[in-house]
């Protein structure tokens, strides 16, 4: 394996490449969802969605986390291991915070007596839930990846200074971030 990879030095790392294909694949899923949303929107009984304030906060959170993960990567490359671990932890926490804020945001719908699911629910809000929920799961996957990398960084026996895993995780992280921005704009635009 390693030999093969060294032969391929000039090219993009195969794992990174795999990630890019995976991103394409995930995009297809959300493209499916959002086009379903658009189709539904043109039909009767569609309700205008009011995006709660909380979603602005969560958007800010995930944007911030993109910055921290980039900083973590920088630290790793400069071998500032303490900084690196801290930033990694902050990123993961911000990721979790994002999900929490999303959940709180959906809680606010309930307070406004808007049904997301069950009898009396409207597909427009159900879509919001399903799409953001799917996105949340992808963020959660990113958090798990960061935690795994962080544990590996702490574990001295497998100390490795290869930045490839983190580069991949960071790319993914930026992707879920960008995906959310897209969804957010989509929801505000296409209500």
């Amino acid at each position: 394996m390693s030999q093969v990879i060294s032969e391929q030095k000039r090219k993009i790392h195969p794992h990174k490449f795999t990630l890019w294909v995976a991103i394409g694949s995930i995009l297809m899923m959300f493209a499916g969802m959002t086009s379903a949303y658009i189709v539904k929107r043109s039909q009767a009984s569609w309700l205008m969605i009011e995006i709660p304030m909380m979603f602005w906060y969560s958007t800010a959170t995930i944007l911030a986390s993109s910055v921290t993960v980039q900083l973590a990567l920088k630290s790793l490359k400069k071998r500032e291991m303490i900084n690196y671990r801290r930033l990694l932890a902050v990123t993961a926490v911000l990721g979790v915070l994002f999900i929490v804020l999303q959940i709180v945001g959906f809680g606010q719908f309930a307070a406004q007596d808007i049904r997301l699911v069950g009898a009396g629910s409207n597909a427009s809000y159900s879509f919001l839930l399903a799409i953001s929920g799917l996105h949340g799961i992808h963020v959660l996957g990113g958090v798990v990846a960061l935690v795994v990398i962080a544990i590996r960084a702490l574990n001295s026996s497998t100390r490795s200074y290869s930045s490839v895993p983190l580069e991949i995780a960071a790319t993914y992280w930026h992707f879920v971030d960008a995906l959310w921005i897209y969804l957010f704009i989509f929801f505000t635009w296409m209500k």
Partner: peptide
């Protein structure tokens, strides 16, 4: 969702 959460997709 439609099966288990009562949504109307």
């Amino acid at each position: 969702f439609d099966r288990n959460l009562g949504t109307s997709f």
